[in-house]
Design a protein around this nucleic acid. Structure first.
Lengths: 353, 353
DNA sequence: CAATTAATGGCAACCGGTTGACAAAGCCCT
DNA sequence: AGGGCTTTGTCAACCGGTTGCCATTAATTG
């Protein structure tokens, strides 16, 4: 016994431990049982199975619980049941404002239904994402993947283990929440056509982004319908910086209107074009996607195709919770509408001076 | 293009139970023990107490664990030990970009040290905040409160139960991470003085905000030092909208330079002043606080006193983790520097035309 | 080479709820 | 009053790790 190990004897004011689990730990169902004069299992039932015990006993137990300031131990509950009342949300990038509203939507809905949200980030990497997902799987009842970067197969593999809902991407066999881009895009393109534009450029997002592909398809279709020429450009990364870098290519196309994969690209692009002396929207119109926080900070404020991100977050959560509780399997794809938010960055093309 | 789905196993899905915990549940230490031919407790030791078992047995067990694809059950571990490897972060408003970087900083540091972050929001209400905190306490090892709205006493009460770290506020007896506003503010005020301003207005934040009070103090002190007149105005809420609403009051003061409690107020204020025909910075200079995402989207881009928010998040996490693991109690206040980020919204005052 | 000591693995008792099986008690009916 | 059925509470066996204590065994030392 080389260590000065203090046995559990009453060491007065032990300086070492502060948040000690000394004397008054937390009350357990056993304490309640003692106070109420019943068996612990009865307490358990009274507290989790409504109607299983008589009203009289119920009250007795509830009073005792209140008196002892009882709180269930989530771990003790999770151990035998496997239920944790927790679910995970994995986003590609915590600092990307696109996800803010998704996070909030999920958070709010989760709290409302007495669930806890655990957040993780994939740093835009499919590998990191899968690692995070795997780790989470152990502690959550279900998982929401927002704009996942991993393979469809990996997602399906996860979904085989526990309920998974995907946002911003469609994966066969897995419930998804996706904004339907068509309405918003056709509004945008019609508006551009009405303002005299004849050639529009689309700046694409990351190659592995499902949503980027959908948006490009939407733009192509809408342009065809409106008899506009559409050209596609690639971006290095879907950020403000990526937008700046793509400015040269945009000018080279000769397009008078640009749609970008997201608002960050649009903002960077606009900054760079304005720095080069172009007037927005007189000489070139710019339209983004998502309507993120800050999209209206620019001068002119950004026209954008809004996705109801908050709705996606709460919708996905609802879907997940239904999946967990519902008997049937309604697992389908939830589509939400997009709409054009017309601001100052798009408009009539002025004749070149 | 969309890939035709490749059904790996053409097994028709069992309609009843999907995420069944049928046959092959997850491997436990008992399974490992059986494979490795040792006692479960030895497995437990090999996996969590480095050096407690012989290298030979260690390898045997590790191989078995790898083979069985073992993953610890966090709940089973948490039950006897109380340790969860999880901590909570409560922010006032998830959609307020001020917190984005804090969240990310905390998230990153947590993941690095093998901890999981649980996120909650108080919706700017002290009551909601306390409720969320109480609920979290049961499942986390420690708590980080970012810009808390509850009483000092409530915070101390929580801190008595488990380690708590506070960001953006100083609470006696609780470890805190606070940006030291003085450097940034004095840089800002000196810059304003050098540009010919003689009277500056400060638009305050929420009354219960500790940080707002510090910033006003800092502004007063710096103005006194630079022989400038300082007046204080109140805002209805610390948002873009609040900034717009306070524009009238700002003009009424006759101040030629304004510092606002945060960037959101500054942006709203600038929008409204510009809409009224004022030229920024020729007729009025505007300086915000925090350097949030989007602060440079405006025209002109916003001058602001930057707080290293990411650093606050990671610093608080480090502090918390040290508190949890460290033997001693270094619990003090961690101060981080602020600095002026000079952009276009502040500058030389042009003589009135 | 025997004896003392350190390293190692096993046993069993927890941690705090949940739940299937069952018995006691209460109810209705003829 | 007795038989069948429903409610209500109890017992005990888990869930999957952790850890104090003890018995072996190996290593060190006089």
């Amino acid at each position: 016994m080389t260590e000065p190990k203090t046995p559990d004897a009453a060491a007065p004011a032990s300086p070492a431990k502060k948040h000690a689990r000394d004397g008054k730990s937390h009350a357990t169902i056993y304490d309640i049982a003692k106070v109420a004069g019943v068996n612990p299992s009865t307490v358990s039932r009274a507290l989790s199975k409504p109607g299983r015990v008589s009203a009289k006993t119920q009250k007795l137990i509830e009073d005792a619980a209140a008196e002892l300031n009882y709180q269930v131990n989530p771990f003790a509950r999770a151990l035998p049941t496997g239920r944790t009342n927790t679910f995970g949300l994995i986003v590609a990038d915590i600092t990307n404002p696109t996800f803010f509203d998704i996070i909030r939507g999920a958070q709010t809905t989760a709290t409302l239904r007495d669930y806890t949200l655990v957040l993780a980030e994939s740093a835009e990497s499919g590998v990191t994402e899968l690692t995070a997902a795997r780790r989470m799987m152990a502690t959550v009842d279900g998982l929401i993947l927002a704009s996942p970067r991993m393979d469809d197969d990996d997602i399906r593999a996860l979904a085989r283990d526990k309920p998974v809902v995907v946002i911003n991407r469609e994966v066969d066999g897995v419930p998804c929440v996706v904004p339907d881009v068509n309405k918003g895009i056709s509004e945008a393109v019609r508006s551009l056509a009405a303002n005299g534009h004849t050639k529009v450029a689309f700046v694409a997002g990351p190659p592995q982004s499902w949503m980027s592909a959908r948006r490009w398809e939407g733009v192509q279709a809408a342009c065809e319908w409106s008899r506009l020429e559409a050209v596609r450009l690639e971006s290095s990364k879907p950020t403000v910086d990526g937008g700046r870098q793509v400015a040269r290519d945009v000018r080279a196309t000769g397009a008078t209107a640009v749609l970008t994969y997201n608002d960050l690209l649009a903002i960077g692009l606009m900054q760079e074009l304005q720095a080069a002396g172009l007037v927005v929207p007189d000489q070139i119109s710019i339209v983004g996607f998502d309507d993120i926080f800050g999209a209206d900070f620019t001068t002119p404020p950004l026209t954008t195709v809004r996705s109801p991100l908050g709705e996606c977050g709460s919708g996905a959560t609802t879907l997940l919770l239904d999946l967990l509780h519902g008997t049937g399997e309604p697992a389908g794809t939830l589509r939400v509408e997009t709409e054009l938010v017309l601001r100052g960055s798009s408009g009539r093309l002025l004749p070149a001076g």
